[in-house]
Simulated assay, not measured.
Amino acid sequence: MSAFYLLTKPNCPLCTQAIQLLHSLDLEEPVELGVVDIAEQQELQEEYGWLVPVFIRGKDDAELRWPFDANQLLEFVEQ
């Protein structure tokens, strides 16, 4: 099982879309998803405040920043 993190913030409709995209994927293996609220960490808020949603792959810290579609997300998750 691969681990991923989703950087998000409160009242973020794009973040909701990103989670829905992830749930819509036809994955061979399940993924572990940690949701990180950047509003709770000043450093993350400064770095990612205008960029969320951002998926981060746990094994190599690679980032997939919005905008992305289901195909791009699938490719990112399966790498």
Results as ranks from 00 to 15, higher is better:
R57V: 08
L73T: 03
L74M: 13
R57Q: 10
V54Y: 04
N71K: 14
F76Y: 06
Q42N: 06
G49P: 03
L64F: 04
A70D: 10
L51S: 11
A70W: 05
A62K: 12
E46M: 12
G58K: 02
P67N: 12
V52M: 05
E40Y: 02
G58M: 05
V77R: 04
L64A: 01
Q45R: 02
E63V: 03
V77K: 06
D61E: 15
G58S: 08
K59W: 10
D69R: 04
V52R: 00
V54H: 01
A62T: 11
Y48C: 01
L64I: 02
R57W: 07
Q79P: 08
Y48V: 00
E78I: 12
V77F: 08
Q41F: 13
V52N: 00
E75R: 08
A39V: 06
E47G: 07
G49R: 04
V54N: 02
W50R: 14
Q42S: 12
A62S: 14
E78G: 11
A39K: 07
E46G: 05
K59H: 14
D60W: 09
E78Y: 11
W50Q: 15
I56C: 02
Q41H: 13
Y48N: 00
D60N: 14
E63S: 06
D69S: 07
I56A: 01
E47H: 11
Q41I: 14
I56H: 00
Q79C: 09
F68Q: 06
E63Q: 13
E40A: 13
L51W: 04
P53N: 07
D69I: 05
V54S: 03
A39T: 10
G49N: 07
W66V: 04
E40V: 05
L51P: 01
Q42M: 03
V52A: 03
W66M: 07
A70K: 12
L64V: 01
F76Q: 03
E40T: 10
L74G: 08
W66G: 03
D60E: 11
Y48A: 00
Q41M: 12
Q79E: 15
